[in-house]
Simulated scan of single mutants.
Amino acid sequence: MSATRMLVLGVVKLVGEAHGYQVRRELQSWSADQWANVQPGSIYHALKTLAKDELIEAVGTEESDEGPARTTYKITAAGEHELQDLLGQALANAGASNDQLSASVALLNLIPRKQAVVLLKHRLAGLEGQVAPTRYGVTSFPEMGKPAHVSELFRLWLVHLEGQVRWTQDLIDRLESGQYELPE
């Protein structure tokens, strides 16, 4: 799953109708180039691929004083379904990459509140299931005849994992208390 694909679909949905430059500006305003490595070329490539896959469709062309004409797109029903699938996978999967999770959080307002909570609870269960084996790795790795300093990797993973568990539970709590504007 590509975070860029999810973000481009999400921005087209949020804006209603958008051309590549609008999508690019919006994602730049979110600093997506830093946390999801979304580059201008990948945005335009995603738009072309999404149109080819019939997840967005061209609805017009705008002339531009700054360059070539700009094709405007809107999301299709298939694109809506794909976006919901991508968001659901990223929010529920404890193994989702940081850029996928970040993209899904940036687009959280496209998911009904109750659904977001269910997805995040699934993620939380997956994360919590990884804590004990990771803790075991911290203490047992040297006993397996491996260099003792390699256990530092397990410590690093444990700290990241515990942070993700805490953040996920806190986000669930915030959503359940009604914070943020999400569809009901």
Rank of each mutant, 00 (worst) to 15 (best):
L153Y: 13
V8C: 06
L107V: 10
R24Y: 15
E17I: 00
A106H: 15
S42E: 10
G145A: 00
L14S: 03
G16V: 07
E66N: 03
V131Y: 12
S29K: 14
D53E: 14
Q169F: 09
E181V: 04
T4I: 02
T71Y: 01
M6T: 04
M1Y: 14
A58V: 04
K114R: 13
M1E: 07
W167Q: 15
R123K: 05
S31M: 11
Q169H: 01
L91K: 04
G129K: 05
R70H: 01
L9G: 09
L110Y: 13
A77L: 13
V138Q: 02
A78P: 13
S151F: 07
E176F: 06
F154M: 04
A148K: 15
R5V: 02
N98Q: 12
Q115G: 06
Q28I: 01
A96Q: 11
E82V: 00
G41R: 13
K114W: 11
D65Y: 10
V159H: 09
V131S: 04
T61R: 07
E66I: 10
S29G: 14
V15M: 08
L124V: 00
D53A: 03
L87K: 00
V117Q: 05
P183I: 08
T49N: 07
L50V: 08
V11F: 13
I111R: 09
A46I: 13
V118N: 07
I43Y: 04
W30Q: 15
K146G: 00
E63Y: 14
L101K: 07
R123G: 01
S140I: 09
E181T: 13
L101S: 02
L91E: 07
V118I: 06
S140Y: 13
L83T: 12
G178D: 12
M1W: 10
Q100T: 06
Q179I: 01
A92W: 10
A51R: 08
L120E: 00
Y136L: 12
G67K: 03
G41T: 07
F154C: 11
G178E: 11
L7W: 06
L182R: 02
Q115V: 04
A46E: 00
E162T: 11
L171K: 03
H81E: 01
L119V: 04
F154N: 11
G126E: 00
E162G: 12
V105A: 01
E181Y: 05
Q115K: 10
S29C: 11
T168E: 02
G41W: 12
L119A: 05
G126S: 06
